[in-house]
Amino acid sequence: MQQQETPTVESIAALVDHAILKPELTDDDVAADLDLAGRWGVFSVCVRPSDIARSVARLDGTGVATGTVIGFPHGTTSTAAKTAESRRALEDGASELDMVLHIGRLRSGDLAAVTDDVAAVVAVAEGRVVKVILETAYLSDEQVVAGSKAAEAGGASFVKTSTGFAGGGATMHHLRLMRDAVSPAVRIKASGGVRGLATLLEMRAIGVDRFGTSATETILTDVQRLAETGTASGASDASSY
């Protein structure tokens, strides 16, 4: 469990992977979101694979890393496809990979297949951060635990709740299950429904290390307001990711 601290814009921004993943986003939309991420100094952006190169170029000099998604959003592509996608993403400049595990295999109890799928992407990443998305909305508690353990067995750096596209999102219950299921060496990422500062801080207090959200500006503006007035607005973002 993480020790609570007084939030600052810098400390909260350092926990954020700003999500730029909606399929309908135009080039101008993506550029605006990349500029927002650079302006706030978040840890990273998580972009669609086709946007990696432009993200790396536009964020050059900002200190904001570029991550991307693999097998997104369903996780049902073959391991060969996931590894090929991972290689191309790394060639284009991605520094972190958020892969969706094979949800159907996990629900079928084929944990060896799930572990091998993760391990193949981890091998391609060659030491770079790999986050494994469980898609908790589709899983029982037992499957959340089993998926977390399989991700760790495959060498994942993080286990992550959700894509944000399956209905539902990160919950305190699932995050506690995930934190308890893996060793301290594996970190936890909450995504889907992280729309406000209060939610983020509550999750941080139980050991969540990173947050995927499109509500970055809402959250960080609330941090600023809290520092200035002692009161956050409590406003929330309408999007699911």
Results as ranks from 00 to 15, higher is better:
M1K: 12
Q4F: 11
T6A: 10
V9K: 14
S11L: 12
A14G: 11
L15S: 08
V16D: 08
V16L: 14
D17Q: 04
D17A: 02
A19E: 10
A19K: 05
I20S: 08
L21W: 08
E24V: 13
L25K: 11
D27W: 11
D27V: 13
D28N: 09
D28M: 09
A31V: 08
L34S: 05
D35R: 15
A37Q: 09
G38I: 03
G38V: 07
R39T: 12
G41Q: 12
V42E: 11
S44D: 03
V45I: 03
V47Y: 05
R48N: 01
S50L: 12
S50P: 01
R58F: 01
G67R: 03
G67E: 08
T68I: 01
P73E: 09
H74A: 11
T76K: 14
T79Y: 05
A80N: 08
K82I: 13
A84K: 12
S86N: 06
R88H: 15
L90H: 04
E91T: 06
E91M: 02
S95C: 03
L101G: 06
H102V: 02
H102R: 10
I103F: 06
R105I: 02
R107N: 09
S108V: 05
G109N: 00
D110R: 11
L111Y: 13
A113Q: 11
D116Q: 12
D117G: 02
D117V: 08
V118G: 04
V118L: 11
A119N: 06
A120Y: 00
V121N: 00
A125G: 09
E126I: 00
G127A: 04
R128S: 01
V130S: 00
E142A: 15
Q143D: 15
Q143S: 11
V144C: 09
V144N: 04
A146P: 05
K149P: 00
K149E: 12
A150C: 08
E152N: 08
G155E: 04
S157M: 05
S157I: 07
F158R: 13
F165A: 13
G168F: 13
G168E: 06
G168K: 04
A170I: 04
L175A: 04
L175G: 07
R176E: 10
L177W: 05
A181W: 13
V182R: 00
V186S: 10
R187M: 10
K189R: 12
S191G: 00
A198F: 13
T199H: 13
L200F: 10
E202R: 14
E202K: 15
R204S: 07
V208D: 01
V208R: 01
R210T: 12
G212Q: 04
T213A: 14
S214H: 03
T216F: 07
T216S: 10
T221L: 12
A227V: 03
E228G: 09
G230Q: 11
T231L: 14
A238P: 02
S239A: 13
S239P: 04
